[in-house]
Amino acid sequence: MAASSHPIEERQGSSPLTNILLRQEVILFLILILAVTLLALSSDKFLTVSNILNQGRLLTEIGLVALPMTFIIITGGIDLSVGSILGVCAIVLGYMWNPSGPFQLPLEAAIIVSLALGTLCGLVNGLIIVYIGVPPLITTLATLALYRGLAEGISQARSVRGYPEWFFQLGQGEVLGVPTQLWVLVFFVIVTAIILSRTVFGRSLYAIGNNELGARFSGIPTGLYKIIIYAFSGFMSGMAAWIFVSRVTTTRSDMGSGLELDAIAAVVLGGTSIFGGTGSIVGTVIGFVLIQLLKNGLSLAGVTTDGTIVVIGTVLILAILINNFIQRRTNAA
């Protein structure tokens, strides 16, 4: 359970933080290698460059949202509203641009408005969580409904179609043989990884997750930092919306529903503790790559979607179980 500002009871022994992180990622990476090997053995279509790159196209939206989710979960928070923010941003993008709509902005301007709205939605989450002290789970549960409701209300269930050709480059095009959006994802992975591991800001997020009160007493502006990461989460949902609309060439108010659970699953699978305080971008990347490759590989091996989600659920529980087990062993030693 995510308790925003509660000191954590279950801290792992005395081993240095980096040590644990390293171990978790190594374990995960081994699981990933194992999964890839098994899947490659069961279908010769799986381990091909074109298939793997194509999977990059499909995982970008989840990936973009999972990155700030890692920040948030490290601080002991959670953001359930990301899927709904994606929905409202997609709708507003289309609505602002719609040549037969009331605004008829240039598409570039509509994209900027949409990204700004995403950031604003995240900012509202952050402000409610920090200034009013409503726990993140409830705040974002409420805004999950609210933002989706805005998407439905604004769109009146009408979809907007017929975007110009250049707009599809991001979601369907390629740059140097690699899907365009994968470059965007890689960029944000690098940026967030550096922020989390190499900056004072990133270090502070761990401190907040471990002991918020302590972090505040040691001079970290905890409130400000939390607001920033929720706003960032909103912004990234807006980015994901932009890419999503470009990929599927239309806007619908139900876009991105259920995205929050996929993103959280990726983050948690990546070894970030839901209680806060530990986690890494590398882990999250392995997490969402593993989930996407499982979905793809199982399908290629002839498993249907319903079977696949059973496997993914099982892998999620088992991976955390193995992690816990090994960590306890390590700590005992």
Binding site: N54, E61, D254, G258, K295, L300, T305
Partner: peptide, 25 residues
């Protein structure tokens, strides 16, 4: 003929399913 589809009427999942079968050939 095999039937395979998402468990909810969701465009994104449906696209991913079709995509996999294109790869599968």
């Amino acid at each position: 003929v095999t039937t395979d589809a998402p468990t909810e009427a969701n465009i994104d999942d449906q696209i991913a399913v079709i995509d996999n079968y294109i790869t599968q050939g």
